[in-house]
Design a protein around this nucleic acid. Structure first.
Lengths: 345, 345
DNA sequence: CGCCTGATTGCACACGTGTGCAATAAGCCA
DNA sequence: TGGCTTATTGCACACGTGTGCAATCAGGCG
């Protein structure tokens, strides 16, 4: 036995309340928004009626007249990606705190779907859009250039002149991570990247390279290899590194999932982490602290980055137009997957 | 130099197009919805103008008059939970495929926030609501009983008469998992639960108990312990089990994260998995296949469950009112964390 | 030529809320 | 008592789209 007062049952509106309270709907509207323009007594009476009748104001109608939907759209490559989920969590948190609701849409990294989703957001009349970790990049420009709502890109391909952005400081963070390995005494340090060719990838490699340079180490191209950001491919790439005549004593990985795959390959080859090889990741996923050994990695403040992206939109809504190209510093978290090398090289 | 034609720039509406095309707005409306009531030639002309002017229909205005927003609300405890993220991914997938947009909101497992969020969804005039993994349970009844939109509960506390539901078949799946251990030859099998007291918890314990019964094994209360669904607490619980005079030879864990903590504790105690102790999880998170050793666990088809929940709503919208209390079977995935016990007990 | 049919279009209203402006009432002061 | 100020309320329109109904027009047929 289910309560199924099918959708046709018309909800109580502001006019219904007006009829009961014997006032005009204008007065009800004002009373419910606590306008000082309405008599205190009648206002209370109206609010009581509204409460008793289970009235729910229609945000739809309100949006139509105020031209503000108090709604934002978030387009992500894949919500199942833990980094993305963390970011969205932060976005939703501050959005809810400011009376905004968030539309979520996956793009599955398919450009045409991404475009379709953005179009749908425009029709929904969202007040702003946040795009996370998209690979669309340049294809976006025509779409963005005649965008009618502010857009914030988060860790995106090519933050352009048309949009605001929040990005992790990839270069500096990677530099720190690599320097950590150098300071431990490592000299043959490999880089296990992501052949996807994101901007993040390029930047993280740059940080790696700069750290080597600063320490007077030569960049060895044979120690640079590519996975695809997932454990399986990283395993293969790691196997390749281990097969070198002079294998590395440490690996800096594009992300934690790659590090996970690398560690498994190292184990499978009968070697130990960090005894034989040190491993550093990037992201600091929730599980990284529980990996075996606990992973040394660069923490991306995912939630915080989501908050900042949303805050950027809120600032724009409030006309507080300031520089909105934020670089968020990463934080090196040293755990047990790194140690000094066994042998001097 | 940013394009910031602030929000006041009024968008082109159906009326603007009508003016250009020298017809009434009604005709434009019909042309854009491919109504056969409009002349083919003028229809094409109108559509061309719409395309050239970058017209975007207002879903807000349309929702107001059609009383259908083509929108659903999804309330989750925490989007950063990988199970939840998988479910949401499935929901969004089928929603997008049917022209629906999804509002996402976290409840953080705070009942009052959950209620606030549902209220907000009502104001947004969503066509339906999906609630995932809520612990609110009984407190929900008053909220649900005068709900005006259909609601689907997914792996929820107490699927009530007021709502439809999609649930994993906890009892059967847990029974399968435990039987797997029994068939391997284990006799002292522990249960590492979640003291949170979800319905899932109770059911998974029931499956464990039934498997023991069916095999003629006595339920040993000392082998039943509680964590909180996260690795840290599971570590503690596992330490407790290992300290028993007769420690178990196998552990069935409430979820994969608990299993992760259990494995770490077993390692820290100088024992091996599965050599000394076998471990089974529940969920089959993405990382579980990459754990060391790869985890034997019960796969919850997260995406598929999300799809089913959304499909249930779609059925209800289409008036196809059939029994909507779906039990989804779990699938036991046997990997390397389980093996026959060393010693006969 | 007049009537009927079908195609095409516009009028007018509706959806639920917000708000500028005028209208009314009440209170105050000279 | 008359005029002014202030508090309170309602009228009327707007937001952008959908749709029932009437109106108009063209064409065909008797």
């Amino acid at each position: 036995m289910r309560t199924n007062l099918s959708h046709s049952a018309k909800l109580t509106s502001i006019k219904d309340i007006a009829r009961v309270a014997r006032v005009s709907h204008s007065t009800v509207s004002r009373a419910l928004s606590n306008s000082p323009l309405v008599n205190q007594k009648t206002a209370e009476k109206i609010r009581r009626i509204a409460r008793d009748s289970g009235y729910r104001a229609s945000a739809v109608a309100r949006s139509l007249v105020t031209r503000r939907s108090h709604t934002i759209g978030v387009v992500v490559t894949n919500i199942a990606d833990p980094f993305v989920a963390g970011v969205v969590s932060g976005i939703e948190e501050t959005a809810e705190g400011h009376g905004f609701s968030v539309f979520l849409a996956n793009s599955n990294a398919e450009p045409e779907r991404e475009v379709r989703v953005v179009r749908s957001f425009e029709e929904r009349r969202v007040d702003g859009i946040i795009v996370t970790a998209s690979r669309v990049g340049a294809r976006y420009v025509p779409l963005l250039s005649n965008m009618r709502v502010p857009i914030v890109l988060l860790n995106n391909q090519h933050p352009s002149q048309f949009a605001h952005s929040v990005m992790i400081a990839n270069i500096q963070a990677s530099l720190d991570a690599t320097r950590h390995l150098i300071e431990l005494g490592h000299r043959r340090i490999a880089y296990l990247g992501d052949r996807g060719g994101h901007q993040s990838e390029t930047e993280r490699f740059t940080g790696y390279r700069q750290a080597l340079e600063a320490a007077g180490l030569r960049l060895n191209r044979r120690l640079v290899t590519q996975g695809d950001g997932k454990p399986e491919a990283a395993k293969g790439a790691m196997a390749h590194l281990l097969a070198l005549p002079q294998p590395p004593t440490a690996v800096f990985c594009y992300n934690d999932l790659s590090a996970l795959g690398a560690i498994r390959q190292i184990r499978d080859s009968g070697l130990h982490v960090p005894g034989d090889i040190s491993v550093v990741g990037f992201d600091d996923l929730y599980i990284s602290q529980y990996m075996d050994p606990p992973l040394t990695t660069v923490r991306q403040p995912m939630r915080q980055m989501g908050c900042m992206a949303m805050q950027t939109l809120l600032d724009i809504f409030a006309e507080a137009e300031s520089g909105h190209d934020i670089k968020v510093p990463g934080e090196l978290i040293v755990r047990a997957s790194t140690a000094p090398p066994k042998e001097k090289s």
